[in-house]
Amino acid sequence: MDHPPYDLDVRPILREGGEPFSAIMEAVAALAPGQSLRLLATFKPLPLFQVLGARGFEAAAREIGNGDWEVLFTPVRPAGPQAEAPQGASGEWPEPSQRIDCRDMVPPEPMAKTMEAVEALVPGQTLEALLPREPRFLFPELEGRGHAWKGEAQPDGSYRIVIRRGGRTEAT
């Protein structure tokens, strides 16, 4: 927590009609453990709350005038002693080597099945899982084991998650 927040102003990108998502993700990947990200944008970036929320960041937004917003993303879960950052190297995700559908399972079976399938992967491989809803209890488990994930809510209320197995075989 001793790092000052990392400042990122995406207003110039937005004003030129650009897409700041990759710049933001690069900044997130470059954060030190426990470091916050201070983002300046021309609107309240609600979709980003969800994306970074899934990676353990809590968002605090305030309007700073002229319709601009300042959002402080603070990591709320300990980053953990992982060998590689879960969100690092976001560009190199291979096609899922396995797909599972857990939508018709009762909690905690979807989580157990997903973890079972993830543990069966070779490090670097990915798994696509369809879950009945956003798996709040799964995220800390993935994080603790050093796996990376991308997830998105589906229109029917279910949740699609792609998990890439981390480099380590045993969590601490």
């Binding site: 909690p107 905690p108 989580m111 157990a112 997903t114 973890m115 079972e116 399938a117 993830v118 543990e119 069966a120 209890f137 488990e141 603790g144 969590a171």
Partner: peptide, 14 residues
């Protein structure tokens, strides 16, 4: 449910 999660969460899949 919470007991299961607390006890078996860390080892599930393994």
């Amino acid at each position: 449910f919470l007991t299961w999660l607390e006890c078996y969460g860390p080892v599930m899949g393994r």
